[in-house]
């Protein structure tokens, strides 16, 4: 193995890690805002699938990747609307509805895929990368981090945008209060239901976008169950990040490396069955939970629907 080969290999590995991390990052950021506001969103896997399917449909028929991202986000939002109506407005059990939405979207997208694409399996052309001048000339790191689709940089920028919202704005404070002490927020004259609805719909948009990225840029096609637990990984990221968007980014990159290693090992022809390699990211999650589970902190009113005047 020559030095040149390993350099190329390493930058491909890191490039793959970033590509795999972006859906997790978006899902994690989405879940984080819901959890901050007190809504445990188990349906995020379903929202990502809706985003992946509609995102692919949008991009495939219009030929525009950006329109695909838009329809993907809209798909996530449309599932989030159901979640907001059932769990925030009328306060149904968030876990039951979350499971139901995930199951339903798994079935529905697989069904639609079967009738629409199962004979042709159409693919999208590779996404054009936005090459950042100078930085992309750095060996190994340059091609790995600075030759991605524009939306990747936007997603990373969003991390800092979210951090700003949480720490410096009234909205951030409201979200936090909706999760920690909704009654206090209500007394302060701010609508808890509305605040939580904003949070859930934002989650839907981010999860849908993450799904659309996964299908359109990551894979270039839609297949049933394409998210394969990415939404659940997002929930874990949000739990371990303790409300800080930057930690979601680091966590997503870590899992991204695991996922990318999975593909890289297969490409490199290392003789390990794929089933063992597929266990890697989930094994990483369990190790993280065993090590840091206790230190994760969640809002006090998480999972509890808010009803005015109820004790």
């Amino acid at each position: 193995m020559t030095g040149l080969f390993s350099e190329v290999f390493l930058s491909a590995l890191l490039f793959g890690a970033v590509t795999a991390a972006i859906p997790l990052l978006l899902a994690g950021l989405g879940e984080q805002i819901s959890e901050k506001a007190g809504v445990l969103n188990i349906g995020i896997e379903g929202m990502m699938l809706a985003g992946a399917y509609l995102g692919f449909v949008g991009a495939f028929y219009s030929g525009s990747l950006w329109l695909g991202f838009l329809t993907g986000a809209a798909g996530g939002v449309s599932v989030a609307v159901v979640m907001a109506l059932l769990c925030v407005r009328i306060g149904l059990n968030q876990i039951v509805i979350g499971i139901a939405l995930t199951l339903g979207l798994e079935g529905l997208t697989a069904l639609l895929h079967h009738f629409q694409f199962s004979r042709s399996y159409p693919r999208l052309p590779a996404a054009d990368a936005t090459v950042i001048p100078l930085l992309s000339d750095i060996p190994v790191i340059g091609p790995a981090f600075f030759k991605h689709h524009l939306i990747v940089y936007l997603a990373v920028a969003l991390v800092f945008g979210m951090g700003y919202i949480y720490r410096r704005t009234q909205l951030g404070l409201n979200l936090q209060a909706a999760g920690d002490k909704p009654a206090a927020l209500d007394v302060a004259g701010i609508d808890v239901v509305q605040t939580r609805t904003i949070a859930v719909l934002t989650t839907g948009a981010l999860a849908g976008l993450g799904g659309a990225y996964l299908a359109n840029v990551g894979a270039g096609l839609f297949i049933p169950f394409i998210t394969n637990g990415a939404g659940f990984l997002g929930i874990v990221l949000a739990m371990l990040a303790r409300g800080r968007p930057v930690w979601v980014l680091f966590g997503a990159l870590l899992f991204g490396v695991c996922l990318s290693l999975t593909t890289a090992m297969q490409v490199a022809g290392i003789n390990i069955p794929t089933d063992i390699i597929q266990m890697l990211p989930f094994l990483a999650v369990m190790i993280m939970l065993v090590l840091f589970g206790r230190r994760a902190s969640l809002p006090a009113a998480l999972g509890i629907p808010y009803e005015r005047g109820a004790r």
């Binding site: 306060g91 509805i97 139901a100 079935g107 069904l111 079967h114």
Partner: peptide, 23 residues
Amino acid sequence: GVPNHFTLVLVSIVLIVLALAEY
């Protein structure tokens, strides 16, 4: 020619309608 995934959709709708009925 309907894939078995349809059962998932049915199961999901049962859960949601049931929760609504309880409410």
